[in-house]
């Protein structure tokens, strides 16, 4: 018996021979004892394989949205609270940073130009988060202003104070320093600047605490929205 015969027998078992091929093989099977034995053994083998029991799947292979790479829909309102949390957190960090940086800068330059500095820092800080940069630059300019006029008259000092209190107009300040005429315009701006200069921390602690609380609230609402929706999806999934 050769492999061609085995192939024929195998196909015959599956009913895959043409009628003429089948009858030719059947004729050979009735005379060829060896072929008949092989045929019987192959038939047994095939029968054994076919009656091998099918196992039940050990678990459920249903895909979860995560497995399928599908993001569950975001609950309504969630993006709003997420954005709000981010914004409030940003404001919070900027405020805390401002309160930390300004007094530090003030104490560092205090011996050089104390009056100018307090006001400079205060003026810049009162501008809020958006002007945090000018607020830190202002004190840096102050010492130069003070050194530039070592024998300064009261008017000179005033002009320096005004200059640093309004940082965005830094170039104007230099010009104002050079030409003492600018001092004449200073007095109207002085009183509010002087008042603010007294507070070393530009952002009130109350506001920072409020921001912190608001941030936590927004985060909590966002988290609750998200986890509620996740739980709903999961329970819908498990009950299917």
């Amino acid at each position: 018996m050769n492999f061609r015969d085995a192939e024929l027998l195998s196909a015959y078992l599956d009913g895959r021979l043409s009628p003429s091929e089948a009858s030719r093989l059947e004729a050979r099977l009735s005379t060829d004892k060896n072929l008949k034995t092989t045929f019987e053994e192959l038939r047994q083998t095939r029968a054994l394989l076919r009656q091998l029991p099918q196992r039940r799947a050990p678990r459920n292979f249903r895909l979860t949205p995560k497995m399928a790479g599908i993001r569950p829909p975001e609950p309504r309102g969630y993006p709003v609270f997420r954005l709000a949390t981010a914004l409030v957190a940003l404001l919070f960090v900027v405020s805390v940073g401002l309160n930390a940086v300004v007094p530090f800068a003030a104490s560092r330059f205090a011996p050089a130009a104390q009056p100018a500095l307090g006001m400079g820092g205060g003026g810049g800080g009162s501008g809020g988060a958006a002007e945090s940069q000018p607020a830190t630059e202002a004190p840096l300019q102050a010492p130069f202003a003070a050194q530039a006029a070592p024998t300064a008259t009261p008017e000179d000092t005033l002009s320096a104070e005004v200059a640093t209190a309004a940082p965005p107009q830094a170039e104007d300040t230099m010009r104002a320093l050079a030409t003492e005429q600018a001092a004449a315009k200073a007095p109207p701006a002085q009183p509010p600047v002087a008042q603010r200069g007294a507070a070393i921390q530009p952002v009130p602690v109350v506001l920072i605490v409020a921001l912190g609380v608001l941030m936590l609230l927004c985060a909590a609402v966002a988290w609750m929205l998200r986890s509620n929706s996740d739980r709903r999806i999961r329970s819908r999934w498990n009950h299917k």
Binding site: A6, E7, S10, L42, Q44, T45, L49
Partner: peptide, 16 residues
């Protein structure tokens, strides 16, 4: 067809 025949032949021998 041919792979199936070979597989069955080998399995027959192995199961013996």
């Amino acid at each position: 067809k041919s792979r199936l025949a070979r597989a069955r032949l080998r399995l027959r021998e192995c199961l013996q």
